[in-house]
Design a protein around this nucleic acid. Structure first.
Lengths: 142, 142
DNA sequence: AATATTATCATAATCATTACAAACTAATAA
DNA sequence: TTATTAGTTTGTAATGATTATGATAATATT
């Protein structure tokens, strides 16, 4: 579901964000890139295309997207924040070998225990960690 | 289920950790304190009792406990790690108003998606955020 | 075009965590 | 007991991710 530059721009405008070039590029990157990139990944990759890009801008833009509820912050790891476009609810699996974060379907609402009936739930995160199939098979061939 | 000093000491020895005074105090603190304390909370509270206690020791000891699988790290928030004694699997709810982290029962295994059948799962975390009943009722009375 | 507003940049500041080396304590052996 | 070794704790310095700040550039508004 590759969106055009113009379509991405509209998405930003919908959220009352000015569709600057940098913002569109960062949004596009988040859409295209699998594995839920970190700030460093985003910055390093986009820096090749946009040499003037500053890391501050990446931070600013991501925080802007978070406030606009376009993007979610994943705190699956304690030393590095990852970012996730908000589409539908899903769980996250981080491979401890290759650091890729995979999405998986999960019906989170089924989880909700009775003991939470008096709580106001704003966010739900399901984080799994382990080894992904690709790294598992590599390990076997070593 | 308050454990005595001697019993806590035995727990450490079981895990091949020397039962030093500091380690026992930190373990005891984790057992007694509700809401999953941060390093700062642990340090500040224990510092009153043990004025010579160093924050390094708190970090060292917690990491030791994690390696020994006595304690789990909670990365529910991106700016502060919380710690959780390993007992049985449960979810964590963080109140965004009072910062307390509540446990709740959850049957994670029932919900594991088929798409993860080829993944080796080592850790499972379920993090919810929102407002706890106590803060909700406070808000209503304001 | 002039002015006000917003974006971006570059650097400095912050803050949680880790690394490190010295000081201290406990365990073991002679 | 003393000497030796291993393990623990401390305090400070280093690291590294993130945020704050002030200057500059771009865009929108009048």
């Amino acid at each position: 579901m590759k969106l055009t530059f113009a379509e991405l721009s509209t998405e930003l405008v919908k959220k009352n964000l000015r569709p600057s070039h940098h913002r569109i590029k960062i949004l596009e990157y988040l859409l295209d890139k699998q594995g839920h990139p970190s700030v460093d990944q985003i910055f390093n990759d986009l820096h090749k295309e946009i040499p003037t890009l500053s890391k501050s801008t990446v931070y600013n833009t991501l925080n802007l997207f978070i406030t606009a509820r376009l993007v979610r912050m994943l705190t699956i790891e304690d030393n590095e924040t990852r970012y996730d476009l908000i589409v539908d609810k899903h769980g996250h699996f981080k491979c401890e070998s290759c650091d890729t974060i995979y999405d998986f379907k999960i019906n989170i609402d089924d989880f909700i225990a009775d003991e939470l009936s008096d709580f106001q739930i704003n966010d739900q995160d399901v984080y799994f960690k382990g080894i992904c199939p690709s790294c598992l098979s590599n390990k076997n061939t070593l």
